[in-house]
Design a protein around this nucleic acid. Structure first.
Lengths: 259, 259
DNA sequence: ATTGTTTATGCACGATTGTACCGATTCATG
DNA sequence: CATGAATCGGTACAATCGTGCATAAACAAT
């Protein structure tokens, strides 16, 4: 995926990954960066010597002080992490992606592989900040009045800002996902915004935790169809999955998660 | 591509490339500029010595302004806290305030009293998030491409977003503050943005840590004058303070801080 | 014009660094 | 304690680096 990195860049990327998920495995890193495990081990040794991580058998851990996120997002982080990992597989180098508000989408951005180079637009400040942790992501914010419930800019100004974009992919935050009703939401302005965002993108991805399946809310964001990819958790019922797939949408199943 | 450049021009071009992609390779640069790698190495060494980049094996990286806030925020928090407390005294209920990027401004927003109700616009995601912590603040974001060094949206789109605002107060981030040269900055696009922001506001507030006093940078944001309030730290030299006051600006001294 | 000085550049050479591979050792786990 | 995986130290090789030196151009002073 990402290669040709200066050794220092690689170490920075490892650091970013450590900040995010709190741990790294030597083998994984070697594969991601396309270098030998020896090189990764030497990196980790150097970083540990510099006090940037704690070396353990098999990889390295973030220093206890440096994990604000894992604490803040709490237990469900494991599930969202797995969901995010699956969603990430839809991304390619050079893509322009719009990322809608939502804690799942935040997890996705945090889970992006370090080397991936994207142009990422978002209306949610928290997502913008997470994206800035990645050295090779160009970040664009959609401005406007921030809705406290959503934690992101929605409304007239935001919709106008959106008009500058024609993203390759729109990663939508999910509120309710149902085979018949499609994608639905609770907050009118938020739904209106999502609708526009989805319409402008060449493809739409929805990463959906299981609690949102078969939920129907008052406002319709979009129907399902072949332009849409749905990422479901490992424990999503097969019945729901096949029903969704029957609409023409592509279904992506997350691996079972530990946490 | 480009040859026959004066060494200074070449270094400026390297700087531009660094700003854009965050990294340069010695070999690539040598090929692009049609000079030997030795020359490039000398350039990079000089630039590193001047604090313009970080030299690494194989090339150079942009300065770790890449991760500004995990590092920069922590450093002098106590001092900034005191500065923020003083700056807060300029705010009144119901005001519309534009808050520019900068770690000091972030501290100010974090230090806002809980009951204060404001409309707060900002181009910096981190500040937007901090403002959302306050229940009675209406937050508006200025969108656009995020500059990694600044950590905020600057550029054409951001300037256009700004045109919707006529804030009562503009809280500017300081780079250099000098009685003769006025308020100056390092990054051209950032300065251009600040300039517009300052021009649109009825009043301007600059909270300035002592290390930025008497510093003059290449680009001018604004001259001083009676429209401007400057918040200085407790340890700012009296001479500097009176010189600044002589320009017509209002001076606000922070209380001595612990940290 | 001449001379000397500074500056930018290129080249050569030894030193340093980053990386992969190999064997010996240590570790986690059943 | 047996076994495979992970780690460490050493080695080898290539890329990169720093330095000293030579050349050439620009410039100042004579």
């Amino acid at each position: 995926m990402a290669s040709d990195l200066l050794s220092r860049e690689r170490q920075d990327a490892i650091r970013a990954e450590l900040r995010q998920s709190g741990r790294v495995l030597a083998g994984d890193l070697a594969r991601v960066f396309k270098v030998s495990e020896d090189t990764i081990r030497r990196d980790l040794r150097d970083m540990a010597a510099a006090g940037l991580c704690e070396r353990v058998y098999g990889g390295a851990l973030a220093l206890p002080a440096e994990q604000p996120f894992s604490v803040r997002t709490g237990i469900s982080r494991g599930r969202k992490q797995a969901l995010a990992a699956a969603a990430v597989s839809c991304l390619r180098d050079g893509m322009t992606v719009f990322v809608d508000a939502g804690s799942t989408n935040l997890a996705i951005v945090q889970a992006l592989p370090p080397g991936l180079s994207l142009t990422l637009a978002t209306n949610m400040p928290a997502i913008a900040m997470a994206a800035l942790e990645h050295a090779r992501i160009e970040v664009i914010t959609i401005g406007g009045r921030i809705d406290r419930h959503v934690g992101a800019a929605i409304g007239a100004q935001a919709e106008r800002d959106l008009e500058m974009l024609r993203p390759d992919l729109c990663i939508l935050g999910a509120c309710g996902l149902d085979a018949r009703a499609g994608l639905t939401g609770l907050v009118y302005d938020d739904v209106a915004f999502k609708k526009i965002a989805a319409a402008r993108a060449a493809a739409v991805l929805v990463a959906c935790t299981s609690d949102k399946l078969e939920a129907v809310h008052p406002f319709v964001i979009a129907g399902l169809g072949d332009r849409m990819t749905l990422t479901l958790e490992a424990d999503a019922p097969d019945a729901v999955s096949t029903a969704l797939e029957a609409t023409g949408a592509t279904i992506l199943r997350a691996e079972p998660a530990a946490g």
